[in-house]
Design a protein around this nucleic acid. Sequence first.
DNA 1: ATATATTCGGATAATATTGTCCGAAATAGA
DNA 2: TCTATTTCGGACAATATTATCCGAATATAT
Lengths: 144, 144
Amino acid sequence: MFSKACQYGIKATLHIAEQSSQGKRVSLKGIAKAIDSPEAFTAKILQLLAKNNIVNSIKGPSGGFEIAESDLDNIRLIQIVTAIDGDQIFNGCGLGLKKCDENNPCPVHEKFKSVRDDLKNMLATTNIRELAAGLNAGNTYLRV
Amino acid sequence: MFSKACQYGIKATLHIAEQSSQGKRVSLKGIAKAIDSPEAFTAKILQLLAKNNIVNSIKGPSGGFEIAESDLDNIRLIQIVTAIDGDQIFNGCGLGLKKCDENNPCPVHEKFKSVRDDLKNMLATTNIRELAAGLNAGNTYLRV
DNA sequence: ATATATTCGGATAATATTGTCCGAAATAGA
DNA sequence: TCTATTTCGGACAATATTATCCGAATATAT
């Protein structure tokens, strides 16, 4: 469904959100450990997330990554997915056709439309505070 | 969503289904042209589909690929997707966790579950006769 | 039998994705 | 100011996916 980079990106963002909601800043090392991901590769993804204003990065000692309290409601899954994988997954044709639309549909156009729209709607309405809350409560997990 | 191989596989199967429903057998060359795919790569995918009893292959002059009339109702999209991409997309965790389930859910488990189940249900209930009919009627397209 | 048309299957190549390494830049604290 | 800690960014490496090539196997028709 999503690329590995995107999966790491979502997990990293959620871990940062969880920690930020407790007022804690977290380092690359801490993130990689928390989400069980390769550190250097995760660093690349975090750079991308930072450029897209999804997370905030602070250099230097006691630096790391955080998300402003006020952003936890605004940041939604769709922003992470779009930043890393693009919008093909919920906007593109299921069979990869360039010009597939209502007037020129591929054979699975209608069938896929509802699935794609559901996915897009879910991603667009789910904010990270909600997901971080489950982590904080110990009801959900980011590894194993 | 699906790999390119899988997209080619679905398109190839639908083209064969369309032709088979008209009693016509079709060659690799014809398929690659009809679905605008690289011929040699398409050949590999067709071998895989043949091994999985999704299409029937006939060697020699006037050979090619076909699907028995009686199979058009039985063959569903889920078989093609499973044969080529596996079941991770509709059975696996959205974040790639190995052991993500009701008792040990990832943060997006519930949200993804409905999307995944919708997708799986759609793939499991859509047979290729139905999709081939749209092609035959000229209502849907496999290229451009 | 022979020539021809076709799929099969193994080897190889090109490209994309995933992952690593390391020096540069920034910044906090001594 | 100096040192240590951290992210940044570019180059590189490994792996997976996509794509190509070509001889072998098979079957048809002459």
